[in-house]
Design a protein around this nucleic acid. Structure first.
Lengths: 348, 348
DNA sequence: GTTGAACACTTTAACGATACAGCGTCAACA
DNA sequence: TGTTGACGCTGTATCGTTAAAGTGTTCAAC
């Protein structure tokens, strides 16, 4: 039933010309082809439903018109992490406009060898998101760098020794400073607690540093307890906070390392009869949409995840066009947004 | 600096054999090659860092080892919709294990012609998610069907006249029935309201039908008001509910068409001084993680989005291997999960 | 002692596209 | 009148891989 798809040769035969001329028409190479022939070729393409064969074109031109998105994480679910997905959305939108495809490859750290993208030459460049310990991350970057393709690291710094690479990160530190200034501005917070995962997650380290930097500038800084939870899940977060409360009493402010942790903490505080924001001011971090789901709505720092994706795509396209990334490291601003969870006097 | 990548020919020269033999080794074609030669070839591959050239292989075999994921939606952000992302995660995980790549193409309905995947032959099959009016959806399906590739529709029925296609949907109807039975079992709900977008979104239609089916079986069914909101956003949802309240008073139960709408409704009810679940029982739909973020936690119907992705990948692989999809239409069960928002007597 | 089957390779010819060189034709200009 | 070069097209070779057919050796079976 399905006939063999039409090739350049078929089109050329129907249009009474050569494959090369058809190629010129299809690729819009200006000034090479006359109007009359162009018209005939286009008609023939239409008639036969001609569609260029990407693989053949790639073989010949050695350009793949595709960028790989490699996500190294033990859990395949990571691809659906809201922030990852938002980055991906930004990438596909920008690349699609340029006629590039995005090839995804979610891969566990141990399976790097088996990843389709890495075992074959599939892309002109690679966006890389990694997770895990710093050592695991470095190993993943090294492995990917082996491919000899330009690499753009997302939410991650470029390690030394990887020449053809660049990185885009969000301003975690600045966001954390904004949170801290907001909470501590009126001097009424005396005891603050911060929730972060025990893992040495670089973004979390930067957020903690931002909070501490603000504290260091205050005349009468509040005490800060950093509660390190096993992971960022609800149970671990609530467990860490529950262990803290009897020993130190409730904090005046609770800084979530991310929205999920903030909401877990907030739920526990309210269970214990504490009012938010009147007794405890609560803030999140890295929010996209969750803040609205909390009650009261959560003060948070919005991640520019979609913009990171767009910027990454843009930078990669420039790298491919000019041979060099426009930057080695690029920081995108975050947006701090105050809502009811931290704002005793506010309306929202 | 970067030397030309090694080809089969280079490897063959180093191993003292022919490209064809190297090809046989690389592709593990059993019984064709002796142990000694195999060893030499593998060593040569290692030395030269040989990596198969996917485009050349594809040109020759006419197999692309990639499946396209086409998401037709006006907003590029749709790629990052949590449910879409979860489906995608399931797909990439399953396909990756089989050595297939996933190529993403988020595309606005008007830009279908420009979509990289559709203008070139990039994949062996296509997963399709569409949105918009039924007419827009049908047009998108027709356009994609033009490619002559097998199509797997996700969360969408297969229209007539598309032969090489199958669909996977979740049991919206069954989920809605579970919600309704839960709410109406004890006969204490007299007035129920349901929030759905005014658009004729098929999933929403099925959910409404499920609720009505349960009502029809009750001896003394409660009244049901279906509030059709402009879209599924916070503002539209709260507006519709706010307009409803003065005319009909508060309902005893509020059924959200999805979690987002349920939480918007719940927030408004509580603003008006109504207690959830004591005065109004609230339920969501299509939850992934949001339920935890609500206060009280939201009763909802979990979408098997990840499983849909896995099942889709599996079915596509079978289609490619056997020439036929294992089913024309497949329904995945949902999981109904009761939490505090609808459970006056409960603990959670 | 011939046949032939099994093995372990090699040879050839594509897959569909494009880079590049070439080649008539004709207008412009010295 | 002769040269130059722009224009518009054609011819050929090739990108890296693999299906299919071919080659020559070995060895068991009749």
């Amino acid at each position: 039933m399905t006939a063999r798809p039409a090739t350049l040769r078929d089109v050329a035969a129907l249009a009474g010309t050569t494959p090369m001329t058809v190629s010129n028409v299809v690729n819009g190479r200006a000034g090479q082809v006359g109007a009359e022939v162009t018209r005939r070729v286009m008609a023939a393409c239409e008639t036969l439903g001609y569609r260029p064969h990407a693989a053949a074109r790639r073989l010949r031109t050695n350009r793949r018109q595709a960028i790989g998105m490699v996500i190294v994480d033990p859990s395949p679910h990571y691809v659906s992490d809201p922030l990852t997905a938002a980055v991906l959305a930004g990438i596909t939108a920008r690349l699609g406009r340029e006629g590039y495809s995005t090839v995804i490859d979610g891969v566990a750290p141990g399976d790097l060898e088996a990843a389709p993208l890495l075992s074959r030459i599939e892309s002109d460049g690679i966006f890389l998101m990694t997770s895990g310990t710093p050592a695991e991350r470095a190993a993943a970057v090294a492995r990917v760098a082996d491919l000899g393709q330009p690499i753009l690291l997302l939410q991650e710094e470029v390690p030394d020794g990887v020449p053809d690479a660049a990185s885009i990160v969000q301003d975690d530190r600045g966001g954390a400073e904004a949170v801290a200034r907001h909470l501590f501005a009126d001097g009424r917070v005396r005891h603050a607690a911060m929730l972060v995962p025990a893992l040495e997650w670089p973004a979390m380290v930067r957020r903690e540093a931002g909070v501490r930097a603000v504290l260091a500038q205050l005349d009468r800084p509040p005490t800060l307890h950093v509660l390190r939870t096993g992971d960022e899940g609800f149970a671990a977060t609530q467990g860490a906070l529950a262990a803290h409360l009897p020993r130190h009493g409730p904090p005046d402010a609770l800084i979530g390392g991310n929205d999920q942790m903030a909401i877990a903490g907030m739920a526990l505080l309210r269970e214990r009869g504490l009012r938010v924001p009147d007794d405890v001011r609560v803030t999140g971090f890295n929010g996209l949409e969750f803040w609205r789901y909390a009650s009261p709505p959560l003060t948070t720092v919005f991640s520019p995840a979609y913009a990171i994706g767009e910027t990454a795509a843009e930078a990669m396209l420039e790298r491919l066009a000019t041979g060099a990334f426009p930057f080695r490291r690029h920081v995108l601003p975050v947006r701090f947004s105050v809502h009811g969870s931290s704002d005793p006097g506010g309306l929202v």
